[in-house]
Design a protein around this nucleic acid. Structure first.
Length: 426
RNA sequence: GCAGACGUAUCGAAGCGGUCAUAACGGGGCGCACUCGAAAUGCGUUUGCCCUCCGGGGCACGAGGGUUCGAAUCCCUCCGUCUGCGCCA
């Protein structure tokens, strides 16, 4: 959500930004919202004037009543009554105009960073850099569920009976590996100065509507029957919700948090659950990081954030690359975004394991996350978020990259303390 | 989950239909004075949002509604906190 003042003063820049994102159908919204906003302000002025008058007369009535001049007070009451209907209509109109304006402002995309490559859709995303050699071994890499089954590490059939499609039982060493990755990722981020946090796994609807659109909510969120509660789709939701409607003293910034949570997603719509195994499921666990910082520091933090994920994967000897989302593929709230992709020697391509986003002040404006400087000036913070690791998906990369010709799986040094000292699964 | 009490500035708290919202009173913070310095003392200062013809105006007493000429104050719904009981890892 961009600043309406900015839009008022720079309509052409906003339109140009919309063009860069190939959303030309939204261009007319800019002029529309300017008009609505003008009307809104005029309406408020008129309503405020009437209220000022009413307040004045009410005070006079109070004085008259105290002096016992009842008849004069009754006369005054009639005066107020005259404008009551007009005032109610103005208030109603103002509310409507406000709602319309906000609705449009929600769909006008955030101003993208000048460095974002221009492109229509994900096919025009740009590879930034590769880390590690994408090795293709001279033996065949089976599908990840097959590797897991060799270790009696997964039972999808039973999960299907118990919970349906899109769930799994992880068992034994594979389950332990899953937990080890989470624990290791947690400590990895703590070592880098982030504050560990376990947030609520359910959130109220007002938080949900703050962090996503209705369409996104419908496609992702599970609702708890009979309660105003939703299962979180990512801990970013409850983590950023922590700061809704807050004013943080500037000296406390940056807020750097790393959170653990299970994530629940309906995965309704476009893709469904077509990917087999643990690639796309209704429930997974994730270690996440979020940062709330000063506007001038968000670019720097963006680079630090995705680098953390790259470093984490590299420390487990998994080749990765970074991909930059082009303008057309960038979600409307984002200024800039990189995906981190891990190498799949089976598919001989990279696949997404994490996503790092700089939201500028758009999310903060929407959620009223503000900062107060030493002189008492208030401004909107910048917010960023990034996946540290989501173990089910990372297990795919892990198993494929560490599978040996003899069917064993090596465990990188850094994970061994979390795996009871084991260096290999066999 | 049941019952009761409560929700007002940075904190504690008064106000219970108009004279009470830049909010009494007290504490804290900050500034100044006194002091070699500190403590103590004294003086001052300390909410946010919106509109503006920059004169000013409006809104907010947990949130949202209602009654009223007028609501922190009365009524309703919701949220939260505390206490007791119940239940539970």
């Amino acid at each position: 959500m961009i600043d309406i003042k900015f839009l008022r003063e720079n309509p052409d820049a906003v339109k140009e930004n919309i063009r860069k994102k190939f959303q030309d159908e939204k261009i007319e919204l800019v002029d529309e919202v300017i008009k609505l906003d003008e009307e809104r302000r005029a309406t408020q002025q008129e309503a405020d004037d009437l209220k000022a008058l009413r307040n004045k007369i009410s005070k006079e009535i109070g004085t008259l009543m105290q002096q016992g001049r009842k008849e004069e007070a009754e006369e005054k009451k009639k005066e107020v009554a005259l404008d009551a209907e007009k005032l109610a209509a103005l208030d109603e109109k103002q509310k409507e105009l406000e709602e319309k304006t906000t609705k449009i402002m929600m769909v006008i995309p955030n101003i993208i960073d000048p460095t974002v490559p221009i492109g229509k859709d994900d096919s025009e995303n740009v590879e930034i850099k590769r880390y590690g050699d994408p090795v293709v071994p001279d033996f065949e890499i089976p599908y990840h569920t097959e590797i897991m089954e060799k270790f009696n590490g997964i039972d999808i059939d039973a999960a299907g009976k118990v919970a349906g499609n899109g769930f799994y039982y992880l068992m034994g060493d594979i389950a332990r590996l899953h937990s080890a990755v989470i624990a290791y990722a947690r400590d990895f981020m703590i070592d880098r100065g982030f504050t560990y946090c376990v947030p609520p796994f359910m959130i109220r609807s007002n938080v949900v509507t703050g962090v996503m659109s209705f369409a996104e909510m419908d496609a992702m969120m599970y609702k708890i029957e009979g309660e105003d509660l939703y299962l979180i789709g990512t801990s970013e939701h409850s983590m950023i919700g922590k700061f809704i409607d807050t004013i943080t003293p500037e000296e406390q910034l940056p807020l750097t948090l790393t959170s653990y949570s299970p994530c629940f997603r309906k995965e309704k719509g476009a893709h469904g659950i077509e990917e087999r195994g643990v690639y796309r499921i209704h429930q997974f666990e994730k270690q996440e990081m979020i940062v709330v910082c000063k506007p001038e520091e968000s670019k720097e933090w963006f680079d630090k954030l995705w680098q953390n994920t790259v470093d984490l994967f590299r420390s487990m000897d998994i080749p990765v690359r970074t991909i930059e989302c082009c303008s057309g593929d960038l979600a409307d709230l984002k200024v800039k975004s990189y995906d981190v992709e891990a190498w799949s020697p089976r598919q001989k391509k990279y696949f997404e394991v994490g996503s790092c986003s700089n939201l500028g002040d758009a999310q903060a404006r929407r959620l009223k996350i503000r900062v107060k400087d030493k002189d008492g000036n208030k401004y909107f913070a910048h917010t960023l978020n990034n996946t540290v690791v989501a173990p089910p998906r990372m297990l795919i990369a892990f198993l494929e990259n560490h599978l040996q010709a003899d069917g064993s799986v090596t465990i990188p040094e850094v994970l061994r303390p979390y795996m009871g000292g084991k260096s290999v699964l066999e």
